[in-house]
Design a protein around this nucleic acid. Structure first.
Lengths: 354, 354
DNA sequence: AACTCTCACCCAAACGATTGGGTAAGGAGG
DNA sequence: CCTCCTTACCCAATCGTTTGGGTGAGAGTT
């Protein structure tokens, strides 16, 4: 692993000090040399010897001891709805990367979008004495954030936003608007939205953005064409089935606020004999790696998930440093693919574009 | 959060002791009451008062201090190729659950299946003084495991196995055999395997199991019909394209050792005008939540991912306790869906079943 | 020659919990 | 009355680092 063959126990400052015949505090200060603590710690010569020996013996400071003394762990806690959701997992990859760069470690836990579990997991993290928290699962109206503020716990939000607290998210409203523009210009006038869970700002904002823009363009999205749903394929499937089961013509285009819901909806449509991309357009959100590779490639709004995760860490570091930080909304980008390829639907149903 | 409104600093044993007018060691022993350390620590009456006060003040032991003294962190490190792979993410959910139940916390890191990164991440975990390691990304022939043994680091493998070391995996060979049986009995005789990365036992074992059983049944899988691939949709797509680009008839059935690769392959087949489930059968592996919900539902071998993760924790705990533990291979189960619905291919190409 | 600086270190007290070893008071047994 | 055992505690060292505050030797200043 490293040059040293340390057998059982880790080497300590004391070991190094003893071997060099100097005091442990001197060793400590030398190995801190970057910070101001290193004042007049030691002569150049001694410093070199200390560093060489530390290297040779494979010294690495004991984080328990350091933490005990300094009251900080260099650990940050991350709570997400579920890591098996590729979106959150990808954001977490960004978090891990950025945290590692600033020498922090991360604990992740799944809350399964359950309010009790969120609190429980936060409590566990705090018992672990993390320096700060990144919440990827905040619910609209949750009181957890207020409690954290009262307890002076540094934290930031990720993925979902919550007015009044710093968050690193996608510009979901903007993303919804992109989809509205796309579907409108390709000739659609009858649309539906698979809107996700009402407690998640992601789904709500994407829906609002779409509706807002759609109205600006002169369109209308009837209330019953906005279907709440779970964020997984199952949820999309159900919403898709529900849409088709209604009397009257189904919409010519469907915007699902999440790729997985979109895939589920595609399944429902196909089962009903509709060809996605021809009989009905489908657009998803997040542009997960799957979207482009599906048998019928899925149009999707790409959200910079890795960047959102990285930014969350940067923001948290500033919060921990006592700064005031503003929320960041990352710019989304629409990728049009076969599932909503232009014109097809309009042509079949007689609505031609521009 | 909890009953107490602790403002800034956490309450310590010393605080409790001072408030009750007894010695901190007495408090410590009382709060340990389960273990033998609690000997004749205190009278029933005192013990009750201690526990009540601890509860009231929201005492929670400082893990740094405890760790410093006891030399154990109750933290375990988990290294996976990437959490954005739903398979590993799900296993990690099992790990987190089981770890929480035994009062352990987990650090996860992504190694991106890179040998250097594996070592680096392991090193970071050890610097954090984790009590043990769960490796979900072991490579065939990697020397990392040997080094860990030399350094007396307790660890177990998950997801992938490595002969000679305890692992919690799916019975991948058995899973491959299930697929062979299924495709053979539905009349296929010309098959191909999208085999995954050669350094991962998962892909290798699934392939070997398939070939082994196929041969037993009297079939033959030509070497050039076994295509290595990445484990993602992209990898499956490429392998699918490659298969179709070859001269001669394509196979009537394809076994991809991973659902994502299977989805990629389905994309390739569809792009070439083949209807999956009619012109060509596809079977995946892992039965991720996506498989059943795809527009063309994918046949897949379900591996008990959560259970594999939970088991890994159980095994690690035993390893940490100094026991010898044997590897566990969890039983897989085949779910047949439209992508390889029986008969269709055989009928079209004139090979009837039974 | 008396002084003030640096320099290059050392000292020791924390941080919070654990744990082997006291010990004083009270009761039982002989 | 003396000894021994419980009971119910207390004492103090220890884990590995950090960090405010010495200190003694030599150089430089006046």
């Amino acid at each position: 692993m490293d040059s040293s063959g340390r057998g059982r126990a880790a080497v300590t400052l004391k070991d190094l000090a003893a071997e060099l015949g100097i005091h442990v505090s001197t060793v400590s200060r030398v190995l801190h040399s970057d910070s101001a603590v290193a004042r007049g710690a030691a002569s150049k010569e001694t410093a070199r010897k200390v560093r060489d020996l530390a290297q040779l013996r494979g010294y690495s400071p004991d984080p328990q001891a350091t933490g005990l003394r300094t009251r900080r762990t260099r650990a940050i806690g991350v709570i997400v709805p579920r890591l098996s959701d590729i979106v959150l997992a990808t954001m977490y990859e960004g978090v891990e990367e950025a945290a590692a760069e600033s020498n922090h470690s991360t604990f992740v836990m799944n809350s399964h979008d359950d309010l009790d579990e969120q609190r429980r997991k936060a409590e566990i993290m705090l018992a672990r004495r993390v320096d700060g928290l990144i919440l990827g699962d905040v619910h609209a109206g949750s009181s957890l954030v207020d409690d954290l503020v009262k307890r002076h716990v540094p934290f930031v939000l990720m993925n979902r936003r919550y007015p009044g607290f710093p968050s690193s998210t996608c510009d979901d409203t903007g993303g919804g608007r992109l989809v509205a523009d796309h579907l409108w210009t390709t000739g659609h006038r009858s649309v539906a939205i698979i809107a996700g869970e009402p407690y998640a700002s992601t789904g709500v904002d994407r829906t609002d953005g779409f509706v807002e823009r759609w109205n600006e363009l002169g369109g209308d999205v009837p209330g019953d064409r906005i279907l709440p749903s779970r964020f997984d394929t199952e949820g999309g499937r159900r919403a898709g089935d529900e849409l088709l089961s209604r009397p009257g013509e189904p919409p010519t285009a469907v915007f699902a606020v999440n790729d997985f819901a979109a895939i589920g909806a595609m399944g429902a449509f196909r089962a009903a004999g509709l060809v996605v991309g021809q009989d009905i357009a489908v657009v998803g959100f997040n542009d997960t790696s799957l979207a482009a590779q599906l048998p019928i490639p899925l149009s999707s709004v790409r959200s910079p998930m890795l960047e959102i995760g990285r930014e969350a860490v940067g923001m948290l570091r500033r919060v921990m440093a006592g700064e005031d930080v503003a929320s960041v909304r990352h710019r989304p980008e629409l990728f049009v693919r076969e599932s909503s390829a232009s014109g097809a639907v309009g042509a079949r149903r007689g609505v031609r574009v521009g």
